[in-house]
Design a protein around this nucleic acid. Structure first.
Length: 584
DNA sequence: TGCGGCTATTG
DNA sequence: CACAATAGCCGCAG
């Protein structure tokens, strides 16, 4: 068996572009399956998969991002996928999406306690006869198969691909049901986009973010000084930093600056009384005592030292100048992308260390006022959609309400977050009058979440608001009435916001995977996704074309995601050498 | 050792 | 300190 024969075998099945083909990858072989057929090919997976992708163009069914990550490690990028874990999260909410859970849900089996691997098995050799298949008699998948046993023989790998093909068939039907039942024909498109976003995440994890080690070390040293040459020197430097604060309190008194309660006591000793020691509160008391200023400076440095210091760099920046975190396509309440290693909360001061490689630049683009525009689209509010035609959406809203732009902005944001007090709260009545459809959409989500009714975003993602996500509505009867009301209100804000943030995340991912696809011919590589911002790494000679492509991709994505085109979406796009460089 | 609280950073 | 997230350290329970 060679790659040619493998491609021919699949071609003979009549696979057309976009057809679902399940893929399971082992060390030295791979298995593929369609609903009526499964096989194992003893060939190097990277060679064959890349060719099939180019020549036949299937939509690869994968258990999860891990398969794409293994292939990306060999330089193979799949074009499109059906990611069973991503589709499971879309259909059923939550985060956990291992094969056992996916299978059980599709077969209406309880998932409260899924079968776990029998610890006794660890002391037995896997039986070579292997009469048992992946399915147990009770209908669950065999946990031993899930836990790596699928890879122990060619027959098992083929059977495992067959299970995956079956999963995709059932998920496809379930997605169709969501579209029909909830009148959201979006769900299939969302499944495609979320799946392909998982491919992008695998590539982000493997490929990393270009970073200049010297430039980043320079920025770190501005906060915490040069890299200590020994553990002993590190301790001395730390003590010296502490002393810069402690010298403002009487001799002989020691406080642990890392303990909030001790910091509060320390401040009280110099006559500064605060309910907590958060920076925004201390900011206003800088003049009260020199200790406050020293403490705030210490906090900044301590933050860099512990979270974004030399250790952070050493752990995550490879010798190839790529900084790597792990990427998830859909985490948390509303299905945003997340990243580890601080990629999503790196202090702005350090961004200058994110530098394009020689002969390359970044195209940086961020969506303007994405959440109110998304609210206009998902709610179908014609007045808000009209406001979205302006470059600055808040300007026409302010004019309509007869208030300052700043007030209009906090009012709109407050409505989406569930704020009821302050200036935003006061302007709420005006919003209800002028944008009743959008406000009713938010209120409906709020009310549903308060009583624990699950929600679905515009794209069809289930947002759980019941016991699994937020604790039982109504809660244990030990809590007081006041606290119960407060919890209900918090649940309402959660649901209200999840509908907007979640839909925004869906649009963003359609944009990101469109850029990924259209960037292929320009050697343009998406290297960072940040909720409403894309960073694309591209050779110098393609910079202009890539910037135009990113803007075009947004219009293409918006047209696919919200086909009625009534809402305008904008991106602010710039070609820059480092991430810190000014936007346009 | 695990977990809630506090804190800081980002969108 | 409204919504979301990651991450580190402290203090406490078990």
């Amino acid at each position: 068996m060679d790659a040619d024969a493998a491609v021919d075998e699949l071609r003979a099945l009549g696979i057309e572009p976009g057809d679902l083909v399940a893929l399971v990858v082992g060390d030295a072989s791979l298995s593929v399956a369609v609903p009526t057929w499964a096989t194992n090919w003893p060939v190097a997976p990277a060679d064959v998969v890349g060719r099939i992708d180019r020549e036949l163009g299937p939509r690869w069914v994968l258990w999860s991002q891990a398969t794409a990550g293994a292939l990306a490690g060999h330089g193979v990028r799949l074009t499109r996928s059906w990611d069973a874990a991503a589709v499971h999260r879309l259909l059923f909410g939550g985060w956990r999406a291992d094969p056992g859970r996916i299978w059980a849900r599709l077969h209406d089996l309880p998932t409260a306690d899924l079968p776990a691997p029998d610890p006794i098995d660890l002391f037995h050799q896997t039986d070579d006869g292997d009469p048992a298949g992946p399915l147990r008699e009770d209908g669950y998948l065999d946990p031993e198969w899930i836990d790596g046993g699928w890879a122990s023989s060619p027959d098992r790998m083929a059977a495992w691909a067959g299970v995956l093909a079956d999963v995709a068939r059932l998920q496809l039907a379930a997605v169709g049901d969501v579209s029909a039942r909830d009148e959201r024909p979006m769900a299939l498109r969302t499944a495609y986009a979320e799946s392909t976003a998982e491919l992008l995440c695998a590539e982000l994890t493997v490929g990393g973010l270009p970073m200049d080690r010297a430039a980043m070390e320079g920025r770190i040293s501005a906060y915490v000084g040069p890299r200590p040459r020994s553990p002993q020197e590190a301790v001395e430097l730390r003590d010296a930093r502490d002393e810069e604060v402690l010298r403002h309190v009487p001799e002989g008194v020691r406080f642990d600056l890392r303990s909030p309660s001790q910091v509060r006591s320390m401040l009280r000793m110099v006559g500064v009384e605060v309910p907590d020691t958060r920076a925004w509160r201390l900011e206003r008391l800088r003049d009260a005592h020199p200790l406050v200023d020293a403490l705030l400076a210490w906090r900044k440095a301590e933050r860099v030292q512990t979270t974004f210091g030399y250790g952070w760099l050493d752990e995550n920046l490879g010798p190839d100048g790529r900084f790597r975190g792990e990427w998830s396509g859909s985490d948390g309440a509303a299905g945003r992308m997340t990243a580890s290693a601080g990629l999503h909360n790196m202090p702005a001061d350090l961004r200058g260390g994110v530098v394009a490689e020689p002969g390359h630049v970044f195209v940086r683009a961020d969506l303007g006022q994405i959440e109110p525009r998304v609210l206009a689209a998902v709610s179908g509010d014609r007045a808000l959609a009209a406001a979205s035609q302006a470059d600055d959406l808040y300007a026409p809203v302010a004019a309509e309400l007869g208030v300052d732009r700043a007030i209009a902005k906090v009012a709109v944001l407050g409505a989406m977050y569930g704020q009821t007090t302050g200036e935003g709260g006061r302007a709420l009545a005006g919003l209800r009058r002028s944008y009743p459809v959008a406000m009713a959409y938010l209120d409906a989500a709020d009310r549903a979440a308060q009583v624990g009714h699950d929600l679905r975003t515009y794209g069809g993602r289930l947002v759980r608001t019941g016991s699994a996500a937020l604790g039982e509505p109504g809660g244990p009867d030990s809590i007081g009435d006041r606290e119960a009301r407060s919890q209900a209100a918090a649940r309402g804000r959660y649901g209200r916001n999840a509908m907007v943030q979640g839909a925004a995340a869906e649009l963003f991912k359609v944009w990101a995977v469109t850029v990924r696809a259209r960037g292929r011919d320009l050697d343009a590589q998406v290297v960072l996704c940040l909720h409403d911002e894309l960073l694309v790494h591209v050779p110098d000679e393609h910079a202009g074309a890539a910037a135009a492509m990113v803007d075009d991709a947004l219009q293409e994505a918006a047209a696919r995601w919200a086909p009625d085109r009534s809402v305008r979406f904008l991106s602010d796009t710039a070609v820059i050498p480092t991430w810190a460089d000014a936007k346009g």
